[in-house]
């Protein structure tokens, strides 16, 4: 019989994070999810609880160390352990280098990279105490290609690669299983921000060898696989999900 896991999802009230939360709840896992959007978070928590699932929402600004420490301590207070950590919070904006302001650069790096450092720093000691667990970071193919969201976005997602590898070096022998998925062109709100018109989307679709965008279900399947014992021997890897676009064109 499958054991119920305690899953913490950072950025769980939208896009990929929300889809992962739904899939984990359907598997009867205990899900704690965070988001900056309290209204959406509370609404989802109510919906999910009404459906009989064990979901807890905590509002979190990922750029706040205090908020991040609180998320981890409340999760531990609630369940005494954390088996799976999915980090999916992120921001993007399509800008050329000359148009990226210092403020935008800093904000993107604060959310996407410093936010990642904060949650890893806060959660890892607790995961080690409870004899390990799985971490999946939601990165982006932009880190590999340098395109699709501006230099600030690529830098913030590229920084996640090195951070994930450094964590793996430090914690692999302490039961921490860590990997990163790098989706490229997935049907989410971010795709609508980057490609706002149907024409733009169609032109993009034609550049993908399989002639289709990735879906939330594709991403969720990959994340759940990397978070499971079935991928035990896959460690410190970047799983690029791009319909073949990066290396076949």
């Amino acid at each position: 019989m499958r054991q119920t896991s305690v899953v913490l999802i950072i950025g769980g009230a939208a896009g990929i994070g929300q889809a992962v939360a739904e899939s984990r709840l359907k598997n009867d896992d205990k899900v704690v999810f965070t988001d900056i959007n309290a209204e959406k978070g509370h609404q989802l928590m109510t919906e999910w609880r009404d459906q009989g699932y064990e979901a807890t929402f905590i509002q979190q600004d990922v750029t706040s160390w205090k908020d991040t420490e609180k998320v981890v301590s409340e999760t531990i207070e609630l369940y005494g352990r954390m088996d799976v950590l999915i980090i999916s919070a992120g921001v993007t904006s399509q800008k050329r280098l000359e148009d990226i302001t210092v403020k935008e650069w800093r904000f993107t790096l604060d959310v996407n990279l410093t936010g990642l450092f904060y949650i890893l720093k806060a959660a890892l000691p607790e995961m080690v105490k409870s004899k390990g667990g799985s971490i999946v970071i939601v990165g982006s193919g932009s880190a590999i290609t340098g395109s699709g969201g501006g230099a600030h976005y690529a830098v913030s997602k590229g920084g996640a690669f090195g951070l994930m590898r450094a964590i793996a070096n430090e914690y692999s022998d302490q039961g921490i299983h860590i990997n990163l998925v790098a989706p490229r062109v997935i049907e989410t709100e971010m795709l609508d921000i980057l490609y706002p018109t149907e024409e733009a989307k169609e032109a993009l679709r034609q550049k993908i060898p399989i002639k289709n965008f990735g879906t939330l279900a594709d991403t969720t399947n990959a994340i759940n696989f990397l978070a499971s014992g079935e991928s035990r021997y896959i460690q410190a890897q970047v799983l690029l999900m791009d319909g073949g676009r990066t290396y076949l064109t």
């Binding site: 932009s142 590999i144 690529a154 830098v155 590229g158 920084g159 996640a160």
Partner: peptide, 8 residues
């Protein structure tokens, strides 16, 4: 690692 993406 972020710098390498920046260069790209």
């Amino acid at each position: 690692s972020g710098l390498e993406s920046f260069s790209k």
